[in-house]
Design a protein around this nucleic acid. Sequence first.
DNA 1: GCGACAG
DNA 2: ATCTTGTCGC
Length: 226
Amino acid sequence: MENYDTLSIPEATLLQNKLRERVDTSERELSIQWIGGADVSLNLYSTTIYAGIIVLSFPALQPVGWSLVRAETRFPYVPGYLAFREVPALVEAWRRLTLKPDVLVVDGHGIAHPRRLGIAAHFGVETGQPSVGCAKKLLTGNYHEPGLLVGDHSPIMAGVEQIGYAFRSKSKTAPVFVSPGHLVGMENSLQIIRQCIGKYRIPEPTRLAHELVNRFRRGELPEGVG
DNA sequence: GCGACAG
DNA sequence: ATCTTGTCGC
């Protein structure tokens, strides 16, 4: 994996177009024993990022391990290029994990991206690991509001192409946006997230990863694995 | 040119 | 993304 810090936006766009050719979103039978959640936390106006991955048993969703990494980024946040900011630290956190999950849920989009290479798909291709994207806001595409009950969903469309699902993870609450990352199909991604629902809007892997990295950033947890 | 815009 | 208490609605 090359260094992203000095890439210009046009260069980053070229790399995305090249990496997207390697994305595989064919449906498959997934036997999941461990599922991971990945997220990043940072202080406003700071280039220090606190990345973390939490591993949960599946389908019980009980924490069994984690990895925390502090890193510096020069790449700014630009919508559509989030991966260039967060993926390097997440890959390092992944590398240090002793128990690798069978699939990783990343905070952000999978192929529901202008060039079909959101952070979850980007991470998946760079590591060769199955991944799913679950975002709190839409980046690109259109959808009709799904029903108001847990489990209700509707496709996110980019023209005639389906790029994800608007999924009601909690009744009468704003939906989350699910899309395949790498080595996971469209239906697979929805089934995976559906099985990660707890008491809150945000699916457990992502929610617990967010909680983890925030404690790390505040100094309540040390860098390392556990 | 205008609006939209993950974290 | 982060800073934050109360408050409204189911």
